[in-house]
Structure formats: structure tokens, C-alpha cells
Design a protein around this nucleic acid. Structure first.
Lengths: 236, 236
DNA sequence: CCTGATGTTTGCGATAGCGCAAAACGGAAC
DNA sequence: GTTCCGTTTTGCGCTATCGCAAACATCAGG
């Protein structure tokens, strides 16, 4: 079993208030694993046997309806936890997790959680914090879906992705993992067609530069303006 | 200061795994207050000085956009906590809470939270659980908004309200607090006009009976069917 | 270099639901 | 009983966005 360097993870919010020795003890319970691009880490509905911490790469969490439609719940960036079904008392994963890039994760058995929280109560507090933050973000997303048009929602989604996983280039910010029009559609509650149309429009205005599973925000500022405009004004 | 009977709250999920003596200690830190119908308990953006447990009544949590549009985040039923901004590390309330009926709440100062969790770690674990459940519900709501038509979303919303706060009558289930078309619109991401049209339609089919801020589900089963139908079939 | 698979663009018709406006209704206060 | 105010209902035109379908572009493999 590979040994995990505590210094790599010590600064993460999850481990705030945890002593180095305790961290060591926590990490001893984990194993690490590598998932190649496009492989599934767990499937919606499967037994929640583990929970995860992403070290490298990017993971997409998606939820599927009985009728087969999907939405993207979120993209997981390095340093974030996912698959916390046990924390909320669910026996099964409520979503599917797919590595969208070659990814490395730490894996704890769900069964270790109760013991860990008991020994290290700050774990529970920290997790509560992150889950709470996600809840807030979900509410924001609901608010957007309720009150904004598709173009604004797409703008917000891209800006968020850029903030979370943006790679700075000389002429803009690139979203640092492969993402399709379809993915963006599933984040914003629309169709890939509409997303494509919007991005085409933006591209011809020089706002973005995009291609196959690749998006660069060339003019983040102007995209912010787009995202905030309430529902009026037209192109000229 | 009124003394709170521990037996009234001992069974709540929030206090699972808390001994009676501990519960007593926890309750000593709280005060109770009564909010009349339609009064604000706290406002979005205000300092999160307290967190709450609803004892009697019903509370609506709503979020407002910069441009003044609102959505209903949720309705709080007796026994549930709300205003947990501190748990997620927020200094200000992310939503407004309004008593929709005369309501009684327990109030703890936010400053008491860290001490309480330290002394009674199960509080954090239990809260994590409920916040996690709410996160799931939010995701479900996003899924619905992304994939379903308005009529189905309204059906789901009403069924959920009926389950959470339904009063059983001989001929149906009544939602046990005043709720307007506008409120339902803000729960489902539509307009009061559309909700009104939908309810009128249902009423003429005998599915519901409704009036001013009042809704009775007469045929829950048939509403379930409506809620689940994928997007086809028409009235005949 | 060719080929298939996957992702993207775009045109066009259809429509669910919005937005506005006006009228009807129901309760509460006096 | 009458008046006033907030809620609900309903009609009607409009449009943002979907849905389908076809053409294209790009990448991986052989």
C-alpha cells in the first residue's frame, strides 16, 4: 500500500484542527487508488461502502432519473471530498461519480467513519461545514434556475467552473478538464443544442474560445456582465 | 423565562444519542419565543446571531435575488431546526424566515454552538445528518426543475407538503398551513398564474379542492400518477 | 491516410409557459 | 352591511427554448 504524504493533505479544510499525529492515524485507515479518465468510481444506487477524497484529477457527480435523464450535481476538484453518503445516513450513493480525467483518490471504508468522528470530532464539524456550503450552493442554483434565463445560467456555471478549476492563460482562463456542451447543459438545466448556440454566439463576440470538450473564457469580465443582466437588453 | 419540557423534544433526531441530563443542559441555553403569523423571524443578510428549533407552527424560508425575485427554500415543520448559518460557517443568514402561522421556537445564541458541539458531539453528527438530507432534497429539486414540466413539479411539491405537513381529513389531505399560489410558484420555479391554471384544472377533475391559501388533496393517488408521468399523454 | 466514433453546429417548426391586464372573489375591519 | 385589500382566475399574444434532423468537425486507431 502506498504511503500518503500527510503534508499534501494537512492544509485541507477537512483536516482543520486535526493534529499531525491524528492526521497520520486517519490516513492509515485510507488506501489510495487511481481511476483512469472516464471510469466510474461509484454508481448511483450502489452500496455506499466508501467515501473519498480527491487528490488529483477531476470527478463529475451526476444524478440520473428513472427515465434516464441526467444532471450534473457538481464537479469535484482536488482537495474535496465526495461520496459522503454515510455522513447523511444514506446506505446507497445518491449519484454516480465518474473520473473525467485520470484521477487519484483516497478511500476510506464507510465503516471507519463513526470511529473517526468519535476520536476526532473536528472531522464532523468540518464536514458539516462543507456539506452546509454545498447546500447553500444548491439553493443558489435553484434560485438561478427559477429566475434566470438559460444564457445567464450558463454564464454563471462557466464562471464558477473557472473559479474552481480554472487555469490561467495569457489570454483568458481555461477550464482545466474536459467538459462537453452536454455536461454544461446538464449543469444548467437546458439542452446541448441551446448551450452550443450560446457558446457560438459568445465565440463570435470574442467572449470565449472553445472546441471539443474545451472552453477558454477570454473576457471573464464581460461574461460577468452577461451573468448579471436581469433579462432585458439585446445584442446590436 | 419559560421552562421547556424536555419530554417534548427528547425524541427529535437532533437529540438522538443525547442523555436526558445533557439535553437538560442544552435546553438551559435556549430561550423560547413566539412569533405571530406573518412576522419575520430573521432576514436574509442579517447577522446570524441565533439558531432555531421550531416547536409549533410553520415557518417559510425564502431567498431573494438582488432584483427582488423570491424562491421558497423550504417550509419548516415542528421539530425541525432552521437558521443554522453558523453550522456552515456563514456569518449572515442566507435566507429570510417568516412564520406563516403563529409559531413557537426555541432559540440558541450562535455563540453557544461551538461549546455545545464540543460537549455533545452527537449534536454535530445529527446536524450533519439533517443538513445532508436537505442537500439531497435540494438535488432532487434541481433534478425535477431540469427534467420535468411545471405540472409535475407542482404535483411533487404538493405531495411533499402533504407528507410533511398534511392533516388527514375524511376526504383527503389538507396542507396544514396557509399557502398561496404564489408560494407554490416560488417552490416550483414558475408563476402564480400557471399554478392557478393547473390547480383549476385539477379542481375540475376532482383531484384537489382549494381556496384562498388553502389546498386539500382529494385524490393523492391520482396526483402521484400525474407527478410520475414522464411528459406525454394528454387530457381527453 | 483513412475510418469510425464522438462531439459540435445549425436550421426550422412546435409549444409550454410567461407576461400583461382585467375581472371576479373572499375575508376582515369598521 | 359595506368597503377595501390581498388572492385567485382567466383570456390572449408572445417568445425563449426545446426537439428533431442533418451536416460538420475533431480525435483515436489501425
Amino acid at each position: 500500500m502506498a504511503k500518503v504524504d500527510t503534508s499534501l493533505v494537512a492544509h485541507l479544510p477537512l483536516f482543520a484542527g486535526v493534529t499531525p499525529e491524528a492526521l497520520d492515524e486517519i490516513l492509515r485507515e485510507a488506501r489510495s487508488a487511481r481511476y483512469p479518465k472516464n471510469s466510474a468510481i461509484f454508481e448511483q444506487g450502489a452500496d455506499a461502502q466508501s467515501f473519498f477524497l480527491l487528490l488529483h484529477g477531476h470527478v463529475r457527480a451526476a444524478k440520473t432519473t428513472p427515465t434516464g435523464e441526467q444532471i450534473v450535481v457538481r464537479y469535484v476538484a482536488p482537495g474535496e471530498t465526495f461520496g459522503l453518503a454515510m455522513a447523511i445516513g444514506a446506505a446507497r450513493y445518491p449519484a454516480t461519480a465518474i473520473a473525467v480525467d485520470d484521477s487519484v483518490v483516497l478511500i476510506w471504508p464507510t465503516s471507519a467513519w463513526p470511529r473517526l468522528v468519535e476520536r476526532f470530532p473536528s472531522l464532523a464539524a468540518n464536514t458539516l461545514q462543507t456539506v452546509g456550503t454545498r447546500l447553500q450552493e444548491s439553493h443558489t442554483r435553484i434560485l438561478e434556475m427559477s429566475t434566470q434565463q438559460v444564457e445567464q445560467r450558463v454564464a454563471h456555471a462557466l464562471l464558477r467552473l473557472a473559479k474552481q478549476s480554472g487555469k490561467k492563460l495569457e489570454h483568458g482562463i481555461e477550464i482545466d478538464f474536459p467538459i462537453s456542451r452536454q455536461d454544461i447543459a446538464q449543469m444548467t438545466g437546458t439542452t446541448l443544442h441551446t448551450v452550443s448556440r450560446i457558446l457560438s454566439g459568445w465565440e463570435s463576440q470574442g467572449l470565449v474560445e472553445s472546441g471539443r470538450q474545451r472552453i477558454i473564457l477570454r473576457e471573464p469580465h464581460r461574461i460577468v456582465v452577461l451573468a448579471e443582466r436581469s433579462a432585458d437588453s439585446g445584442a446590436a
